[in-house]
């Protein structure tokens, strides 16, 4: 193994990561209903959206299909990522923050900042 090359590569990795931050690459728009609908329909086809609640910060959403399936959507870097939720996910509420357990520790829990009307809607969805 060429240690000089390995160290050089490591330095290159860190430098490029730094440049990406410096250039402010990435970033994402807040989730919009059309974007969420399009995404879940693409990934869970066929998927007819019945209800949807998007967090006030636009970083996460919960979508329910007419057949009862629930999908968590979160902003993951510059793109949304989704998870099909198990039957009845565990939900905890703390003020305006609602945390939905996705059952996938690496995907992480869904964190939704919701107003009262949205929290009522979420309760109706679950």
């Amino acid at each position: 193994m060429n240690w000089l090359l390995s160290l050089g590569s490591l330095a290159g990795v860190l430098a490029l990561g730094g440049v990406a931050r410096l250039l402010r690459l990435g970033g994402s728009e807040p989730l919009a209903p059309e974007q969420v609908t399009e995404r879940v329909q693409f990934e869970y086809n066929p998927f007819r959206v019945e209800r949807m609640v998007i967090g006030l910060d636009g970083r996460a959403a919960l979508v329910r299909a007419t057949d009862g399936r629930l999908v968590a959507v979160k902003v993951h870097g510059a793109h949304p990522a989704t998870r099909l939720l198990p039957g009845a996910p565990a939900v905890t509420t703390c003020g305006d923050l609602v945390v939905v357990d996705t059952g996938d520790r690496w995907f992480g829990p869904l964190r939704l900042r919701l107003d009262q009307a949205q929290r009522d809607m979420l309760r109706a969805m679950l």
């Binding site: 490029l16 990561g17 402010r24 690459l25 990435g26 970033g27 870097g77 510059a78 793109h79």
Partner: peptide, 20 residues
């Protein structure tokens, strides 16, 4: 700017380094 994402890039490059 969305063609790159710093976290994604670092993950890719770290995986590349580990692969080497």
């Amino acid at each position: 700017r969305r063609r790159y994402c710093p976290q994604d890039t670092l993950t890719s490059l770290a995986l590349g380094f580990g692969s080497t």
